[in-house]
Design a protein around this nucleic acid. Structure first.
Lengths: 164, 164
DNA sequence: TTTTTTGTTCAAATAATATTGAACAATCGC
DNA sequence: GCGATTGTTCAATATTATTTGAACAAAAAA
């Protein structure tokens, strides 16, 4: 009932590509390992499968799967016709969905919190005594606000374009 | 000849916004501190100014400025009419330029190396014995390749849109 | 030439982040 | 109920990334 231990070369290299990929996105390596292995596997895998094949701890696998679920990057697969208690996972492979999840979970929250911080700063800026200084700071804060707006406008566009 | 030490509240908060911002982009905090302070300062600053006001080491400031230069996010400012030896820096504040630099330095290289890794894997995949398995792996690698292409296509668009 | 100023480099120290694993909960089957 | 299975949580630990600071180089001033 044990899984074959080692990853084969193809699996190893695909996993490496994803490990690299998620690092660019600022996500932990285990996320890339898990998603990468699911991506190149023909059948859904359980938490235990991942632990055995990737040689990571149950804790890592559990947390990694949780994050991948929240990103919409994996789904629980219906294993039909068995009295199987374990849940099996398969990767979501539509780029649109992946990008959407990343934007929703990782990008939007920062944009929002940034916007509100800047708004508060802009209000503070009106208190600055020196008119020259006040003008300068207000201008810069406006610019910052514009950046955020641009970001906000670009995201849905991104999703649209990447959905073919 | 010493700088005023502490950042004032406005400066502190603007710096904090940028520290947050660069973290999302996977860049070190010092980058955000340096750029943030330059962004909200009316006059260009030297390396020493940054060290004094941000209380960071000369090493950090030097490395941070180097990276910001490579990203096109700061420029050396011409301080006219003085026999000043120090170089002074001012921020590049055009979103287009910042996005362009980030894409060029941080995004493109990863996209390129990813593409070539996948290309190599696709060639390897043709050696897989089992036809079903070969088909599956090839499909997935194709998909991966498509993701990369989509990414490549989206970048110039991004730059265009963010350039107003 | 010697000293001072300005800035860079990089090994070591530190800080930030991710992973582990043991304890715990929940659910199933007996 | 009781043991076995599956999965979660989180404090301790390991790993990775960043920052520091001392040594160094280059160029100007004395």
């Amino acid at each position: 009932m044990n899984e074959p231990q080692e990853l084969n070369p193809m699996e190893r290299q695909v996993v490496a590509v994803f490990v690299d990929g998620v690092r660019v996105l600022g996500l932990p390596r285990s996320i890339g390992e898990i998603y990468g292995l699911l991506f190149i596997s023909r059948s859904p895998m359980s938490l235990d499968d991942l632990v055995l094949r990737l040689k990571i701890s149950k804790g890592s696998a559990s947390q990694g799967l949780r994050m991948l679920k929240s990103l919409g990057a994996v789904r629980e697969s219906e294993v039909i016709g068995t009295t199987e208690r374990r849940t099996y996972y398969e990767p979501a492979v539509e780029l649109k969905r992946l990008v959407g999840g990343f934007i929703r979970e990782q990008v939007r929250p920062h944009l929002e919190s940034g916007k509100s911080k800047i708004k508060r700063l802009s209000e503070t800026a009106t208190d600055i005594e020196d008119p020259e200084q006040r003008k300068f700071v207000s201008e810069r804060l406006d610019r910052l606000d514009n950046w955020m707006r641009s970001g906000g406008r670009v995201l849905p566009l991104l999703q649209k374009i990447l959905g073919q």
